[in-house]
Computed example of a mutant assay.
Amino acid sequence: MPAPLIKICGLSTPETLDAAIAAQADYIGLVFFPKSPRNVAIGQAAALAARAAGRTRIVGLFVDPDMALLHEVRATVPLDVIQLHGKEPPAFVQQVRAATGCEAWKALGVRKRADMEAARSYAGAADRILYDAKPPEGAALPGGTGLRIDWDLMKGWKHPLPWMLAGGLDPLNVADAVHVTGAPAVDVSSGVESAPGVKDAGRIAAFVRAVRTI
């Protein structure tokens, strides 16, 4: 099995962006969601994306955006991927992919196996499904909570799309997560932070190292 792809999400400073690139992460994520402690302004994101251009692939994370916001961001931030982390239906995901020319990823909150069934409806609309831990009802954030999926849910599951595992991963548990789930790609945010929204360069390096040595 090839080494899993790695995404470091929620970067907001040049120093931690450089740490992710130095570690050779396959993707870096920029969060466009004001309620998140990892939110970046468009100008800030443009500077980070310019710094990353040609060195890694850039993912923009949005929660139930309208097309106007996506076009506004895309006008100055050269995204490779748009990750939709809200309640976006398949038709909207397909519209985003067609209108922006970017890959479109759809995040799904998972607490039980039935939650994974929703992935089937995105076949033909999304390029990748990202399975994240489902937050508690009424939670302000749809992801980046540090909650973990029960990895055993993934055993024997026939995935309808390319997929990525998120939810509570960190340098100490990511190897086990990949062994249990067979994840072809992994995504980390809070698991490489010293405080909410504050990425740690050492933890980023340790996470990537843990995945690359599986």
Score class of each variant (00 low, 15 high):
188 V>M: 05
133 A>G: 03
22 A>S: 13
87 K>E: 12
36 S>V: 06
132 D>P: 10
7 K>A: 07
29 G>V: 04
144 G>L: 09
168 G>T: 14
75 A>S: 12
2 P>D: 05
211 V>G: 03
170 D>Y: 11
101 G>E: 12
126 A>D: 13
4 P>A: 13
10 G>V: 09
62 F>N: 04
137 E>S: 08
190 S>H: 09
15 E>R: 09
113 R>M: 06
67 M>K: 08
207 F>P: 00
144 G>F: 07
54 G>K: 06
26 D>V: 02
209 R>V: 00
180 V>I: 15
86 G>Y: 13
4 P>E: 06
119 A>Y: 01
53 A>Q: 15
138 G>T: 05
86 G>L: 13
104 A>V: 13
87 K>C: 10
145 T>R: 10
70 L>T: 02
28 I>G: 01
125 A>K: 11
51 R>Q: 15
188 V>Y: 04
63 V>N: 04
91 A>C: 03
206 A>L: 08
82 I>Y: 12
187 D>R: 02
24 Q>Y: 02
178 V>P: 00
88 E>D: 13
168 G>F: 15
163 W>V: 08
5 L>A: 14
20 A>I: 04
68 A>W: 02
91 A>Y: 03
97 R>F: 08
4 P>Y: 14
157 W>Y: 15
18 D>Q: 14
58 I>E: 00
7 K>E: 08
106 K>T: 05
196 P>D: 03
120 R>Q: 11
81 V>R: 09
176 D>Y: 10
101 G>K: 05
61 L>R: 01
63 V>A: 12
139 A>K: 10
140 A>G: 01
60 G>S: 08
91 A>G: 02
208 V>W: 06
186 V>P: 11
169 L>Q: 04
71 H>R: 15
86 G>K: 12
169 L>E: 07
30 L>F: 15
118 A>G: 03
106 K>M: 01
37 P>Y: 09
99 A>R: 13
89 P>G: 07
158 K>W: 00
72 E>I: 01
71 H>T: 15
133 A>Y: 04
123 A>V: 11
55 R>N: 00
86 G>W: 12
196 P>M: 08
110 V>P: 09
98 A>M: 11
208 V>Q: 03
156 G>A: 12
71 H>G: 02
163 W>N: 12
65 P>K: 04
127 D>Q: 12
140 A>M: 08
2 P>C: 01
136 P>C: 04
162 P>Q: 04
65 P>T: 01
37 P>V: 01
138 G>K: 07
141 L>A: 02
36 S>H: 06
140 A>T: 05
116 M>H: 02
130 L>E: 06
1 M>H: 10
73 V>M: 08
209 R>M: 08
159 H>M: 14
109 G>H: 10
177 A>L: 13
53 A>R: 15
171 P>V: 00
75 A>M: 05
157 W>G: 06
62 F>Y: 05
98 A>V: 09
106 K>D: 03
101 G>S: 06
83 Q>W: 14
134 K>M: 11
190 S>W: 05
153 L>V: 13
39 N>F: 14
20 A>P: 07
59 V>A: 12
176 D>Q: 13
89 P>K: 06
157 W>A: 10
211 V>S: 12
23 A>M: 06
52 A>V: 05
134 K>E: 14
29 G>C: 04
